[in-house]
């Protein structure tokens, strides 16, 4: 029987069962599928294990030694770094410029552009990846048309099949897909800047550049911080687009650290070493988060 409690404003101690019913399901779900696997990854990483049978081949830190000397790891991490840096360098200014334009309500079509530019973000990575596979297709794709216009005499490049171009081709897709997210974050940031500040600066005769640098940019700090954070963590964890556009190939030329982890763990069933890679991904994300927070705190002082 449910007992009617007479609470003083419902505050005070609740009984154990109330709390258990409310908190229990979340705790079980979260512990089973998030916390335990993360700790298991740490445990698996010390073994050589194919995922079947008992784990008895204890290696200690040997998997970690392998991680640090693994050339494909280095290659994959360098790809992650390239993706993080280039996508930031292109997406952020592009998104900022577009946000400044389409947040101006006097700009005709602003709402349309704003809505449309966000559309690629809504499409799944797999759909985006396959669509661009077609765009890049050397026999059918848009690339053949463009190539025909600009240099009809040379053979059509196979952008996704050539180790020297594949990463750049995928970067284009990443920018295509994600700049709208950053633009939307900036629009929200812009709208939070008090209009009076901008008007006051205009009345004082400040130039547009001046207003941007001393009023708008400082006002958008939180928005920029958020978008940089999303962008870098997203780059470290990039998998779906890579998998949909060639599974990291050819010859690891578009491998990212997560696609390599997946390949090691579930294609070669080396769960032990795969878990080592997973733990290292976690540490990289953690270090980035901590450094980033520290920098922001310092900057705020």
């Amino acid at each position: 029987m449910a007992k009617r409690h007479v609470y003083k404003g419902l505050a005070g101690r609740a009984n154990f069962w109330t709390i258990a019913v409310l908190l229990g399901p979340a705790l079980i779900l979260f512990t089973t599928f998030v916390i335990i696997p993360v700790f298991q990854a740490a445990a698996f990483s010390l073994y050589k294990w194919n995922g079947l049978g008992p784990m008895k081949n204890f290696l200690g830190l040997a998997n970690y030694q392998q991680f640090f000397s693994d050339l494909i790891v280095q290659k994959a991490l360098s790809h992650n770094l390239i993706i993080a840096v280039i996508s930031l360098a292109v997406e952020l200014p592009l998104a900022m410029a577009l946000a400044l334009i389409v947040s101006n309500s006097k700009f005709k079509g602003a709402v349309f552009f704003r809505t449309f530019f966000f559309l690629p973000y809504m499409l799944s990575e797999v759909i985006t990846g396959v669509l661009w596979q077609f765009i890049y297709h050397p026999q059918y794709g848009l690339i053949t048309t463009l190539h025909g216009i600009f240099s009809p005499d040379s053979p059509v490049p196979t952008l996704l099949g050539d180790p020297s171009t594949v990463l750049w081709a995928i970067l284009v897709v990443i920018i295509w897909k994600y700049f709208g997210l950053h633009m939307t974050i900036y629009i929200a940031g812009l709208q939070a800047i008090p209009q009076e500040q901008i008007e006051a600066a205009t009345i004082d005769g400040a130039s547009k550049t001046r207003i941007f640098l001393s009023v708008i940019l400082p006002g958008m700090r939180t928005a920029v911080q958020l978008s940089v954070f999303f962008s870098v963590l997203g780059s470290i964890q990039l998998f779906d687009i890579i998998w949909a556009m060639g599974k990291g190939g050819p010859v690891n030329a578009s491998e990212t650290i997560v696609s390599y982890m997946y390949r090691v763990g579930l294609s070669r069933f080396n769960i032990g070493y795969g878990s080592t890679i997973a733990v290292c991904i976690f540490v990289i994300c953690l270090i980035f988060s901590i450094i980033y927070q520290r920098l922001l705190v310092k900057e705020a002082e």
Partner: peptide, 21 residues
Amino acid sequence: IYFWLGLLFPLAVAILPLYVQ
């Protein structure tokens, strides 16, 4: 704080043990 920790764990980290689980 326990739940907050979840924000730090990317799915990728857990994916292999998750498979075993």
